[in-house]
Amino acid sequence: MKAILCKSWGLPDTLVVEELPDVIPAAGQVAIRVEAAGVNFPDVLIIQNKYQFKPELPFTPGSELAGVITAVGDGVTNVKTGDKVLAFVSQGAFAQQIAVPAKLVMPMPPGLDFDTAAAVTLTYGTSHHAVVDRAQLKAGETMLVLGAAGGVGLAAIEIGKALGARVIAAASTDEKLAVCTEHGADATINYTTQDLREAIKAATDGKGPDVIYDPVGGIYAEPAFRSIGWRGRYLVVGFANGEIPKLPLNLALLKGASLVGVFWGEYARREPKANLAAMRELMEWMAQGKIKPHISGRYALADTAQALNDMAARKVTGKVVIQPQK
């Protein structure tokens, strides 16, 4: 079977495709033929050794996948050969086959295609944990989403609307904002051409948003936080900008506001039952048509480096997936 290998820390173009032995599941594991693997911004950082998760070299990147179980190890009873499943793993998804613990797989809902299934776990899991659990967004409240056209951003928009909130999307181009509107955003802000603080003020009648969802960091964090409403919750989701901002803490005091950290991977590890309940709610919302991952690109396994380069260059809206069998 073919797999992407990271043999040395570096940019996506240093990745190689190699032929590896077919996987054999150990006790408690299942072997999966990978039909689709989701690409996420952390994948760009992991191969450069710039992420909190630091695998040993060499390794196959990729953390979320959908496919068909081809074999089961001893003691596995929750799934069987031929089942269509999705899974979130620490590494190894950018390959034609993978062996994973059976407890990490979840049956795919009927009617769901592999590409969509591979685009759900990390982005929607992160945004559900952020918006529902950490921010406790309520119907009638207003949420501002920065970097709104990315995978977690679009997921946050849809989740906010599913909860009955008003959602303002902020992104860098009108084309990206059009995608945000298609996914339910009530208002939009182009922070390349508009003054962010003035635009937030206009969009909220001067009250400021109740929740700010920030996966970007960088130069927009402080003006956004200065615009937050009374008792607002500022969600620190990530730093796609590459710069970790430093915020004056007196701003939190003046607004009675909270800075709220969001680390979905650790949440899923520490609170697996709560995370499973969240994933079930997401699947219900998907069946009801309340959420639908936006897949803007599909790449063959040999084009994985290009997919990661496009992600790093912020050319991606929503999600892109690798199709390892092509």
Rank of each mutant, 00 (worst) to 15 (best):
K2W: 02
A3K: 12
A3H: 03
C6W: 01
K7V: 05
P12V: 07
L15S: 08
E18S: 04
E19S: 00
P21T: 01
D22F: 00
D22A: 06
A27T: 14
A27E: 15
V34A: 05
A36N: 00
F41C: 10
F41S: 13
P42Q: 05
P42W: 09
K54Y: 00
P55A: 03
P55F: 01
L57T: 07
S63I: 14
S63A: 15
L65Y: 04
A66Q: 06
G67Y: 03
G67S: 12
T70Y: 14
G73R: 09
D74S: 12
G75N: 14
T81E: 10
V89G: 02
Q97A: 12
P101S: 15
K103Y: 14
L104C: 06
P107T: 10
L112P: 05
D115G: 01
T123I: 11
T126F: 08
S127R: 07
H129K: 06
A130V: 09
A130W: 06
V132P: 01
V132A: 13
D133T: 09
L137F: 04
V145T: 14
V145I: 15
L146M: 09
G151C: 13
V152P: 13
L154D: 13
I157R: 11
E158P: 08
I159A: 07
G160P: 06
A162I: 14
L163C: 05
A169D: 15
A169G: 13
A171V: 11
E175D: 14
A178K: 09
T181C: 13
D186Q: 04
N190R: 03
A202I: 02
A203S: 03
A203Q: 00
T204A: 00
P209Q: 00
Y213D: 11
G218V: 13
G218A: 11
E222I: 12
P223T: 03
P223D: 03
S227V: 01
S227Q: 02
F239Y: 13
F239W: 14
E243A: 09
I244N: 11
P245L: 05
P245F: 03
L251N: 01
L254I: 08
K255N: 04
G256F: 00
S258N: 01
S258I: 02
S258D: 01
L259R: 01
W264L: 05
G265V: 11
R270C: 05
E271M: 12
E271C: 09
M283P: 00
G289P: 09
G289D: 15
I295D: 04
R298V: 15
L301E: 03
K315C: 13
G318H: 10
G318N: 11
K319Q: 15
V320K: 04
Q323R: 14
